[in-house]
Design a binder for these strands. Structure first.
Lengths: 225, 225
DNA sequence: TTTTAAAAGATAGTATTGCTATCTCATTAA
DNA sequence: TTAATGAGATAGCAATACTATCTTTTAAAA
């Protein structure tokens, strides 16, 4: 049996749905590779077009500009992560165990999911760490938000908030703690690998230490008397 | 008596020291205004040159490129914040009180410091929130780091770590907690104002709530049994 | 006071980026 | 069979991100 995993994306994220054509899938697959290789600032549609053997104009038929492509792939990532959170916590009773699972999913490197042939998840994870925040750190964040472009991110945080409240219904900052867990998981990873003196894991570069730090941080707060 | 506050900046941050000439000071002052107005992505040296009545080439004499200018102003900000941390905690005995002061300094809007005529600190604070991480989220972060461009940020975090260890010498993650405090203070502010559903402060948009959240988070962790 | 060096102004030029437009051709679905 | 869709090819253009050079003004050292 061959399973195919398809994530339904917001129509406003693209001009033409890249999942539905060969060229579209190549744009996503190679786009992720190229952003990872050069960084988002040096990434251009022209270079991408050369890489996949099409023209600049061909890519503009799918995405308005490179920033929209970044939003698309981050949105895809958050949707995919939420899906993984759901399937990995559905049969867990203890909310604390659930929350630990969430932290682990957020803070550890993913393996490529073969069911999504046009996305390389492990490279995508690296991109989210170093480029992800640039999707919303812009002057037009409010308009983009009105178009629901950040919905998957917000839904993931909502899901995590719910688990936090299951752990402690009286905890006062479930939403802020959720977004903090997500951002800190990525920032500590970036710091560990690039500015190691900003973390306590620089020597070992061991992701499990980020998990331990986050668990300590989160459970001290929500279990406090 | 007229006090002047001068912050000594790393030589590698600039081509020509902007603090030493009129044009240099204008570049900093108006550069901050323009980045705040347009966002870093749309900010160009050409627009800045028009604003201050010089030419593009004139600005390139001070900074290699706009990214270096961003690193310069973020480095300036962290130096200035560390200075404020020092003078605001020097006469405090209780490390917990010190740490609360640090959180307050990080998470609340600053007023313009008249002793630094060529920097508008309250606008700078806004820039750090929305553009600050872009200084190091690049492919060349390691080389920039070797040139010590992020030293002020790292020194601030080192200072905060020391205070954390004063509070609890056995706490295991002082460095990671420091960088977490700094980043979360800014991210929660950005979310509160732009993606409010990611926080618990969206309705009131009250910075003091971010302070309360951070205090709760930090002190639960370091005071835990 | 002269000289000399640094700072700033003025102008020009170039490769790349970030698009838009249009025309053609192959494939597919009605 | 026709019409719509996807994609290749080419052209063009304004803005961006620089570099280079030459001149004039300003300020500090001899």
């Amino acid at each position: 049996m061959e399973l195919q995993l398809q994530i339904k994306m917001n129509e406003k994220l693209f001009v033409r749905n890249p999942e539905q054509t060969e060229l579209g899938k190549k744009i996503i697959l190679q786009g992720i590779q190229l952003i990872h290789k050069n960084g988002f600032e040096s990434f251009t549609f022209k270079k991408l077009a050369e890489d996949i053997g099409t023209t600049e104009a061909g890519i503009y038929r799918y995405f308005d500009n490179k920033h929209r492509l970044l939003i698309y792939i981050t949105a895809w990532y958050w949707s995919w992560l939420e899906y993984r959170v759901v399937i990995n916590t559905v049969n867990l009773k203890d909310p604390a165990v659930k929350l630990k699972k969430v932290i682990q999913l957020l803070a550890t490197t993913v393996e490529d999911d073969i069911r999504t042939s046009y996305v390389n998840e492990s490279i995508l994870h690296q991109i989210i760490i170093s480029e992800g925040t640039k999707a919303y750190l812009t002057k037009h964040v409010s308009e983009d938000n009105k178009d629901q472009l950040f919905k998957p991110y917000k839904e993931l945080c909502t899901k995590i908030s719910a688990i936090i409240l299951e752990c402690n219904p009286k905890y006062k900052y479930p939403k802020s703690l959720s977004s903090t867990i997500v951002e800190v998981a990525h920032f500590q990873n970036f710091f560990m690998n690039n500015l190691p003196s900003l973390t306590d894991f620089g020597k070992t570069k061991d992701e499990s230490k980020i998990v331990a730090f986050l668990e300590d941080l989160v459970f001290s707060s929500i279990r406090k008397l």
